[in-house]
Each structure stands twice: as C-alpha cells, then as structure tokens.
C-alpha cells in the first residue's frame, strides 16, 4: 500500500512536470519537447524519491549531484528544479527569453544546475570527476548523469566509461534515455547502438534495464545501483520520445519543435 501511495504521488508529479514542460516550451516558441517528455519519470524518481539535496542550500557539499548530459532536455530539468523548490515555478515561463536566467540549455547561475550542458557526449566525464572528488573527500554522496541515447555515438562517452570502471566508481550512476530517436531519425538507422547493454557490460559496468515509465522498476534500479560495490551502474531506461502527447510520440520532428501556443490547451488535454 505504501508503495502504491508513493507511485501515485510520483505519477502526479510526472503529470505536472509534463504540463510545465509544454507550457514553458509553448511560451518560449522554440526548444526540445521530445527528449524532455521521454525522460520525465527518470528525473521525477531521482529528484522526488532517490536523491538527497537541499533546495534552500544548493551548494550543500554532501548533496547528491545530478548532471544533465543531454542538455536539450533543459525544459525538463527546469520543471523539475522549480517543483523541487530551487526557484519559483512562475520563472519557467521566462525560458529562452532575453535577460532570463533560464537559458536554452542549462548554464551555471540557475539554482540546482550543477554544470552547463548542450554539446553532446561530454557530461559523463563531469560525473567521473565529481565522483572521484566525492571519494577523495570521503563523502557518501552519489553522482547521477542522464545521457541521451543519440549521444552514445560520441567517443568521449566511452572514454569516460573506461575511466569510471578503472576507478571502480560505485558512487556513479549513469542513466540512458533510450527513446530510439535522434534529430535525423531512428538511432538504429542513423548510427546503430545495439547491442547497447552488451557494450556497457563489456566496459565493466553494472547494467540494469528498466521500463522508463514504471516507477517501481526505476526506484529498484536506483536502489540496486546504490548497493552495488566496486562498479559503476548504468540504467538503460526504455522510453518513448515525446511520451504523453500522441502526435509527438515517436516523432523526430518533435525532437526540436515547440508546441504551438494556440494549440496548447488541446495538447495539455491529452495528459493523463
């Protein structure tokens, strides 16, 4: 019963997160809905169940750190951070506007944002450095890095993967938003990634595959990652690009096209 209650709470937060993503993107008139909507449950689980942090003291040294590597999912990260109390929810409507803090891609100076992002494939290395530093300082805090699946095509991801297993970074968890679609089309057509799980296993990572919309699987996955010793964990979350909005699902077009402002109420009515 307790688990069902927790899942119900997280589902409500996920629904509200999608609403905030779509509203802020429609207001901005540009941005990336597809890869924001696909990963909602992943971040909701992290920020509202798994991670420890203090929104009133973002620099708390013992916090868990979250690095967004797929920087185009900025609307998702901002919606999460606002709901977590790092800044007012109303500020989401300033996304991508001149003079606003909420840059098109994450940048420092936005409370809760740990590092800038936008160039693909360079976020996991930050996680490696931060995890090594946490170990050096004997902190129990953990590091999480959300990557897109398309950016698995970048070489630096695998440089960082090697380093993380060399240093047995069991305080590091990577998450891959495996929605199968990149800007030009299907990942398996543009530059095939499969067998993706085998690749990560071959790099000596603990690999966990989950349904990216099943909160119990996500909670268990992060718990299992935290209890795994001597190896970093990657959670491959099977997801759907544009999840939740029928015409955005599985659509490369909505990788980088914001919903029209005058259609917003129709779009939002789809949210369950």
């Amino acid at each position: 019963m307790e688990a069902a209650q927790e899942v119900g709470r997280l589902k409500g937060t996920a629904r509200n997160t999608r609403k905030l993503i779509l509203e802020s993107l429609a207001e901005a008139g540009s941005g990336h809905p597809g890869g924001s909507l696909s990963a909602v449950e992943l971040l909701v689980t992290l920020f509202f169940h798994t991670m420890k942090y203090d929104a009133k003291n973002p620099a708390w040294p013992d916090r868990d750190r979250f690095f967004l590597s797929k920087g185009h999912a900025a609307p998702l990260l901002y919606a999460i951070l606002a709901q977590a109390g790092f800044f007012p929810v109303e500020e989401l409507m300033t996304l991508r506007k001149m003079g606003a803090r909420l840059q098109g891609h994450p940048s420092l100076g936005i409370p809760g944002v740990e590092a800038p992002a936008g160039s693909e494939g360079i976020g996991l290395s930050l996680g490696v450095g931060a995890s090594l530093a946490a170990r050096l300082d004997r902190r129990t805090s953990r590091t999480y890095v959300l990557m897109g699946d398309g950016e698995q095509q970048e070489g630096e991801v695998w440089e960082a993967a090697m380093a993380a297993s060399k240093y047995r970074l069991d305080n590091l968890t990577a998450i891959i938003d495996r929605n199968g679609i990149q800007q030009d089309g299907l990942t398996e057509q543009i530059m095939p990634l499969e067998p993706l799980a085998s690749k990560w296993r071959a790099f000596n990572w603990n690999v966990i595959e989950v349904d990216g919309y099943d909160f119990l699987q996500l909670i268990d996955g992060f718990d299992l990652a935290a209890s795994t010793r001597n190896r970093p964990t990657v959670i491959i979350a099977h997801t759907v690009k544009g999840k939740g909005i029928s015409f955005m699902e599985w659509s490369p077009h909505y990788h980088g096209t914001a919903p029209a402002k005058d259609k917003l109420s129709d779009v939002l009515s789809e949210l369950k």
Binding site: L126, V128, G129, A163
Partner: peptide, 20 residues
C-alpha cells in the same frame, strides 16, 4: 586517464565543480 584527452578535460571539470 590514459590516451583520452577529452575525458581528461571533462574529468578535470568534474573535479573543479566539486571544489578541487
């Protein structure tokens, strides 16, 4: 970090973000 210069730079950035 071996012959992996991009990760060298990224890892160094991660250290700096953690106060090193």
């Amino acid at each position: 970090v071996g012959i992996a210069e991009q990760n060298l730079i990224g890892t160094a950035a991660g250290f700096a973000l953690a106060g090193k």
